[in-house]
């Protein structure tokens, strides 16, 4: 990666940092493209407000459902040498309680709040979308990478994904992103079906299915036996998925590229793969700074200044 990778005309204009990371997502202005990913420190208003203080451009809440869910028994999450695996089991207090958290976050966080939700059947997706919209989040994210029926996710099949998106589209006027699982052979096709059915954005990726076993215990480590891998290990899969989704949905529809982003350079790579914004999850806990998003944003800026980029839109792979 040399200096020649960026358009020459920008070289003399090295803008001051503050604004170079500004961007727009579904018509919403963000101070930077870094978005707290769903399920990571986002299950209370206090934590969503904290993400704002830590420098996030926007924050996604923990996915909520129509009724409360306890999730799985512990262990629900472990870190083995930087490879994280979790099966929290989508625990949440249910939309009627969640609405309170979202309202407070919307009022106080100072950054756009993206309310995430999921359901077990199509009609429930519509019901939660309608209810959570009452809290007036800037955007919604529909987690369709959750189980639809035994052994499949809604995002496993274009038809199921599309049914959910159509139902959500009819239930709310707030723009929504469809969050996809990478555990499919055709993520591009699924993204296209979501967009055709009303999704204004695609979030890719959710965690990748995996499992740990403790030989001494003769037990799977996660109480749910298997779960989802997150963190640095999944970055290559995330990059590939975002790249394929971008190819499939064309240049206009925004993508929140998520998975394994730890540094500013990781975030830049995600943008180069085709993302509009960058979801950051696991890294928030592993980076030791008190304001991890600010630190990542600073790394992005110093890369851009050093390499002569002036705005995010210029971060593209070479033809």
């Amino acid at each position: 990666m040399g200096v020649q990778s960026c358009p020459k005309e920008y070289m003399p204009h090295r803008t001051k940092g503050a604004f170079m990371l500004e961007t727009t997502l579904c018509g919403i202005k963000l101070r930077n493209p870094l978005i707290l990913a769903s399920g990571i420190r986002g299950n209370s208003a206090g934590l969503l407000i904290r993400a704002g203080k830590e420098g996030a451009g926007a924050a996604t809440s923990k996915s909520c459902s129509l009724l409360p869910h306890e999730g799985h028994a512990n262990p629900t999450m472990v870190d083995i040498d930087g490879t994280y695996i979790n099966a929290i089991g989508l625990s949440n207090p249910g939309v009627d309680d969640e609405i309170y958290e979202i309202r407070e976050a919307v009022a106080k966080a100072g950054i756009p709040i993206i309310a995430s939700f999921y359901a077990g059947k199509v009609s429930d997706f519509a019901a939660v979308a309608a209810r959570i919209s009452e809290a007036k989040p800037a955007m919604l994210e529909v987690d369709i990478s959750c189980p639809s029926r035994k052994d499949a996710l809604f995002s496993s099949y274009a038809k199921d994904a599309s049914e959910v998106c159509l139902a959500v589209r009819d239930a709310t006027s707030i723009p929504f992103s469809a969050k996809l699982s990478p555990d499919v052979p055709n993520i591009g096709e699924i993204a296209r079906a979501c967009v055709a059915s009303g999704a204004s954005c695609i979030t890719a990726i959710n965690t990748i299915g995996g499992m740990y076993i403790d030989a001494h215990a003769r037990h799977a480590v996660l109480a749910n036996s298997f779960g989802g891998i997150s963190g640095a290990a999944i970055k290559p899969v995330a990059l590939k998925s975002v790249y394929l989704v971008r190819k499939a949905i064309g240049p206009e529809v925004p993508i929140i590229g998520t998975g394994g982003v730890f540094t500013g350079i990781d975030a830049i790579e995600m943008l180069m793969a085709g993302a509009t914004c960058v979801g950051v999850g696991t890294a928030i806990a592993t980076r030791k700074e008190s304001a991890p998003f600010k630190a990542i944003a600073q790394e992005m800026e110093s890369f851009m200044k050093k390499e002569g980029y002036r705005k995010l839109a210029d971060l593209k792979l070479q033809e």
Binding site: R41, L47, N74, M77, N86, A285
Partner: peptide, 21 residues
């Protein structure tokens, strides 16, 4: 109430603080 114990799940929050980290 703790789930992950390592500052990721957010479950142990008290206001904007996490008890586990």
């Amino acid at each position: 109430y703790m789930k992950c114990g390592i500052g990721i799940c957010g479950h142990c929050c008290i206001g904007d603080k996490l008890v586990c980290i």
